[in-house]
Amino acid sequence: MNGPFAFTLALGDDALIAAQRLAEWTTRAPEMEEDIALANIALDQLGAARLLLSYAGELEGAGRDEDALAYLRDDREFRNCLLVELPNGDFAVTMAKLLLLSAYQLPLYTALSRCADERLAAIGGKARKESAYHLDHAALWVKRLGEGTPESHRRMQAGIEEVWPYVGELFAGWPQAPVDPATLRADFDEVVSAVLAEATLTVPESAWAPAGGRDGLHTEHLSYLLAEMQVLHRAHPGARW
């Protein structure tokens, strides 16, 4: 993979697929207030995805805009990490995914805001504030569920264990990229282990570390998500509101 284009595309795909998954909670969240909160977070992710994919299209120089990249690629051409395409599961699994994703995106966008590429630095500067809020929101819920009832504790621990194996892929070394994710693992571990400790949850130990998202090798869940996300655009090319 070459440097800035592949990297920008990967980050844009992370945000786009995370937005689509979170949006599935709309009208289904446990409370009306949480419904709005999750939709807000989904919209933040979508906003970052639009900026990143637009820029990726410019870097590629093949005339593809954000819509072409979002709606006219098949699953093997997506470069998102596996974590974001996993099904939402119950609310605890969703909060576990959001905790890990935002604890990854926050130091990534922060480092990006100081990188030499001005466009990426501007996108990082904007998105890191949103990621800080996503992390805060997920951490609040993980602590409450972890310290809530025996049932909420059990389900929160199960949620963390279900998604934990997918953390490894996030921090795989990528030396040519504007920010090498491998350099961010210590930040992530510090933040996440503090949240889990306060939530009386244990950090899982997992030897299984699935990967492949950055090379276009995805779980079976992604193509179903893309079918739903892309069907309108593909059925009515160029349609506008």
């Binding site: 207030e33 949480e34 909160a37 807000n40």
Partner: peptide, 16 residues
Amino acid sequence: LHAPDAELALRNARDL
């Protein structure tokens, strides 16, 4: 709004 505690009420208020 409804919220289980003050901290979440503040965040729900921010979103709503």
